[in-house]
């Protein structure tokens, strides 16, 4: 299972980095999302992989006394925090990318249309209520 998880994380991160280096905002956002999936899995796995064992050990329970018999709950709490933050950031970035497209007239990350390419839509200033 370790090898499989490592492979999954590796594929996610490499796809994420590849997409992150693209010149359009949409692939960049997808890339960041994939990267954060990979990172979230990595955090989760840092608590070691165990199946079918509880994360919380009650005081009198001696059958679960060794670390092999329970799963570390802390990375699960950490990954939850990371997921929430990552989700909010992605939402923010999506709105920003849309705004950049509206204001700059194209979806290039540098805000300049590529060679021999016409702007997708004309750049226009945002109206007061869109800010």
């Amino acid at each position: 299972m370790e090898a499989l998880i490592a492979l999954v994380i590796g594929v996610l991160v490499s796809c994420g980095v590849y997409l992150l280096l693209r010149a359009r905002t949409f692939p960049v956002i997808i890339g960041l999302t994939l990267l954060s999936y990979g990172v979230n899995l990595f955090i989760f796995v840092m608590g070691r992989l165990r199946t079918g064992v509880p994360p919380v050990v009650s005081k009198g329970d001696t059958s679960l006394s060794t670390t092999l018999n329970y799963t570390d709950p802390l990375p699960q709490a950490l990954v939850l925090t990371a997921i929430v933050i990552g989700f909010a950031m992605t939402a923010f970035l999506l709105v920003l990318a849309l705004r950049a497209r509206a204001e700059l007239g194209n979806d290039h990350v540098d805000g300049t249309a590529g060679l021999g390419e016409k702007p997708v839509i004309p750049a226009r200033p945002l109206a007061e209520d869109e800010v």
């Binding site: 905002t25 960041l32 990172v39 990595f42 950031m89 950049a100």
Partner: peptide
């Protein structure tokens, strides 16, 4: 909008690296 896009993307990538480092240390 242009400068903001760069700033946000590079910091999000930085946050991903930060998480990897922190969780590796925890591991």
């Amino acid at each position: 909008a242009r400068a903001g896009l760069h700033y946000v993307v590079i910091n999000l990538a930085g946050s991903a690296l930060f998480l990897i480092a922190v969780s590796a240390l925890y591991g």
